[in-house]
Design a protein around this nucleic acid. Sequence first.
DNA 1: AGTATCCTGGAA
DNA 2: TTCCAGGATACT
Length: 289
Amino acid sequence: MPELPEVETIRLGLQKYLVGHTIKDVEVRLAKMVQGEVQKVKGAKVEGVRRFGKGLVIDLDNGYSIAVHIKLTGQLIYRRSRVARVSPIRQAQGKQVSREKVGTIPNKWTHVIFKLDRGANLYYNDLRQFGWIKIVKTDEVGNLPFFKELGPEFFKDLNLEKFMKIVSSSKTSIKPLLMDQKKIGGVGNIYANDALNVAKIDPRRKASSLSKDEKIRLFHAVEKVLKKGLEAGGASELSYVNVLGQEGGYQNHFVAYGREGKPCKNCKTLLKKIKLGGRGTYFCDKCQK
DNA sequence: AGTATCCTGGAA
DNA sequence: TTCCAGGATACT
């Protein structure tokens, strides 16, 4: 699912391709996807793109911002229709050959089109329509509930000390805690499953029961899998693609997520699947204690 | 703390 | 044809 590595990959792409463009017009094909005064973005120039957890903020030069959450199946795709289609430019972090996944755009899942200068467009596609786009004043982005309540995140404002405090003081199981955006920003189901396998910790364990050593192990395991995800340009489960419509590669490196019945990378025991906090949870009941 | 909700495509 | 997947939120 789109988590920190996927959304950061999109951010990097937008920062590279979108910044400097002026938004000439916006076509909203599905009204419920957009909130706020959409016409405010017309004529504004894109200054930068920020990410907070799994949320994106496109800052404009007129005091407004476009906040976007792609949830499960949202895509932000940049196309310059007037320019000859040369071989797809590689994302800075994409080492393996990425392949075009999107096909014709716009398609039936294209709900919003930002029409840019120089013949370019930014398309928002969302198969399941769970995502949102909110037009807000830049200095009010922090008041949006999602951003306001977002917890500290890896590689940003979360350090080992803070992490240990959050884990120790939590009453829930460790896996739902990792995925709780109000406690820790950016980690979702894929990376939570994988990190717990790397750290050899049972996802059902009560967070507060983790020893100091286990907390340290888990902190580094989450960093490790998130880094791997970033290097791979994200995981293309469901509809995830980067802004050029290319897939990521982390789905080829899953250690636990989606690997029910497959051997554990640590001890070869076949992985089990259970439901925890209403989410699919994959783990090894031999080495994850 | 657990469950329904939004929604669609693919699997069973 | 029914069921399931899931991020965040609103419920019970």
